[in-house]
């Protein structure tokens, strides 16, 4: 549930921007990542975890970059916003620190773990994992939805479901509208 944060925590509007940016980056619906009733509150957990790792300024700058693209006219699609923040046309390894942070945000949502951005690692290589952020970060991790499945060890399905094809990808929270 959206609530007024305690002193010092991120404001509701910051968390909503973080969820909207995460939605563009991950290809999921913002309301799926940060539902009105949100017992796991992962958007705030992830925001705080990322800030603790990369610092407030880096996160503020990434969110500012997102806001500026979101307010462009004519409006950008969610895919265009993601591609821009991730600098997908830049050769791999040459993308900015900010784009590497955007990658880490995707990986938090998809894999439930913090992958240290390459610029913060000793050998400047991506893919170095620090930790599973929480058990809920694992059981809610999105890559399993992309696979039309469930986290291994956390199935909400019932006996025999595996003998039939799954429900369509659209039922797993992904953004099917092509926009916000």
């Amino acid at each position: 549930m959206t609530t007024t944060p305690s002193t010092g925590g991120p404001s509701d509007s910051v968390l909503q921007d973080f969820a909207d940016m995460s939605a563009a980056l991950t290809g999921f619906q913002s309301s799926f990542l940060r539902p009105f009733l949100d017992p796991t509150n992962l958007s705030e957990v992830f925001y705080n975890f990322a800030v603790a790792q990369v610092g407030q300024t880096a996160m503020d700058n990434l969110l500012a970059a997102f806001r500026s693209r979101k307010s462009q006219t004519p409006p950008l699609t969610a895919q265009q916003i993601a591609d821009s923040l991730l600098e997908v046309t830049t050769p791999t390894g040459k993308e900015s620190n900010q784009a590497q942070l955007a990658q880490a945000v995707i990986l938090m949502w998809y894999l439930g773990s913090w992958y240290t951005p390459a610029y913060q690692t000793a050998n400047k290589q991506p893919g170095q994992v620090l930790q599973v952020i929480s058990s809920q970060a694992y059981t809610k991790s999105l890559v399993w939805n992309v696979a039309q499945a469930h986290p291994m060890g956390f199935s909400a399905f019932t006996f025999g479901y595996w003998s039939q094809p799954p429900a369509g990808l659209a039922t797993f929270g992904v953004n099917t509208g092509g926009g916000q």
Binding site: L25, Q79, D83, T92, A102, Q103, N175
Partner: peptide, 28 residues
């Protein structure tokens, strides 16, 4: 494979391009 398509690596052998993706392109 997720790491590959997000960061441009190819540990899975499925991202030999390699490409880096986000959003709906990553999902699909």
């Amino acid at each position: 494979t997720t790491l590959d398509f997000v960061t441009g690596s190819n540990g899975s052998q499925l991202n030999s391009g390699p490409t880096r993706l986000g959003g709906t392109a990553l999902v699909n």
